[in-house]
């Protein structure tokens, strides 16, 4: 497995550039390990993607970093403040947008934002100004007085984002912020995130949709089963784990064919459904011959797509969706 390679020493980034540093951070729930021991550095101004299937441990990792869940091991520092020994300073620097909508349904957006803002010590004119700004970011200025329970899923998602922004944190942590939203709201959220990055905000974006991470993020860490299995820029990940292989779509008994191909030529192949994938090799002929020898029909041969799905597949042997 390719352990984290996003440390501050690489690419010449200074340690002071780090907005979030996780060192050996892990969590056990009883005998079950939700997160093993994560090392991760997020630098000022970047949009960092944390990609992984459901249950990979993304939310648990974020919860530990935000001081919501006490870690079983390791440390988390936000803007240089340790989440445990310097909790208030660390928490002030971080804005959490939880995976589940965390709003008071029986209050208006303005009342919600006022309450959350006051938790961070905002009052008076400053609070009012921030509320207006956050409502603007969420595109909810015209519905500020209505009750949240009358809102659509997408509107609630946008308000959820605004609530994490109200104190203008250094690091904004978004936990699957687009689950269950309409394309329009998703577009709005993406545009907001880019605008916030342009203002200098650092963003940690969690998702199990690789398309989102590919579209939005500068750097990515891929999580599976409580561990980071790879990290780097999209280009680095594709170069290391994705590109260049061969994809063969077949018609016939997948298991038998894959076994025959693997026996003929150990090409490090994986299979999902009727598609066999082979790592980049100088020669594929023995494998293809073995497939044809089983009597199966080859429907399509092509170059493997160089996307995060492929990277994840190469690393774990499973698709993101069926993981």
């Amino acid at each position: 497995m390719n352990r984290d390679n996003a440390g501050p020493g690489q690419n010449g980034a200074a340690a002071s550039d780090a907005v979030l540093e996780l060192v050996g951070l892990g969590k056990d729930y009883g005998a079950r390990t939700a997160v093993q021991a994560i090392d991760l550095v997020i630098r000022r101004g970047e949009i960092f993607g944390l990609l992984g299937p459901n249950g990979a441990g993304k939310t648990t990792t974020i919860s530990m970093a935000c001081g919501v869940v006490p870690p079983s091991r390791g440390t988390a520092r936000i803007a240089g403040h340790d989440i445990r020994s310097d909790a208030f300073a660390a928490k002030r620097a971080i804005g959490l947008v939880p995976q589940d909508l965390a709003l008071y349904d029986d209050l208006s957006p303005r009342q919600n934002l006022a309450f959350f803002g006051q938790l961070y010590g905002l009052t008076g004119a400053e609070l009012a100004r921030r509320i207006d700004w956050a409502l603007g970011v969420a595109g909810l200025g015209d519905r500020a007085g209505d009750l949240v329970k009358t809102f659509s899923g997408g509107m609630k998602r946008r308000l959820n984002l605004a609530a994490g922004l109200i104190h203008q944190p250094t690091l904004l942590v978004l936990d699957e912020p687009t689950v269950g939203v309409d394309p329009q709201s998703r577009r709005h959220i993406f545009d907001s995130i880019r605008a916030l990055q342009a203002r200098g905000m650092t963003i940690l974006y969690t998702s199990h949709y690789m398309e989102e991470v590919e579209e939005l993020c500068d750097r990515v860490a891929i999580m599976d089963a409580g561990a980071v299995v790879a990290s780097g820029t999209l280009a680095e990940l594709r170069a290391q784990h994705g590109a260049g292989g061969l994809e063969v779509e077949i018609d016939g008994d997948g298991d038998a064919i894959a076994a025959a191909a693997a026996a003929a030529a150990p090409l490090g192949g994986t299979r999902t459904g009727a598609v066999l994938r082979f790592e980049p090799r100088p020669a594929y002929a023995p494998a293809l011959a073995a497939i044809e020898a089983t009597g199966a029909q080859i429907k399509r041969i092509g170059a493997q797509r160089a996307d995060l799905e492929t990277v994840f597949l190469a690393l774990t042997g499973r698709g993101l969706r069926d993981a």
Binding site: S63, C66, G67, V68, A87, F88, A89, K91, R92, I94, L96, P98, D100, L101, A102, L103, Y104, D105, F116, L119, Y120, G121, A163, G164
Partner: peptide, 13 residues
């Protein structure tokens, strides 16, 4: 249930 508890825990309080 609403998850606001999580938000409260994440705040500097």
């Amino acid at each position: 249930r609403s998850g606001t508890w999580r938000r409260l825990l994440a705040s500097p309080v």
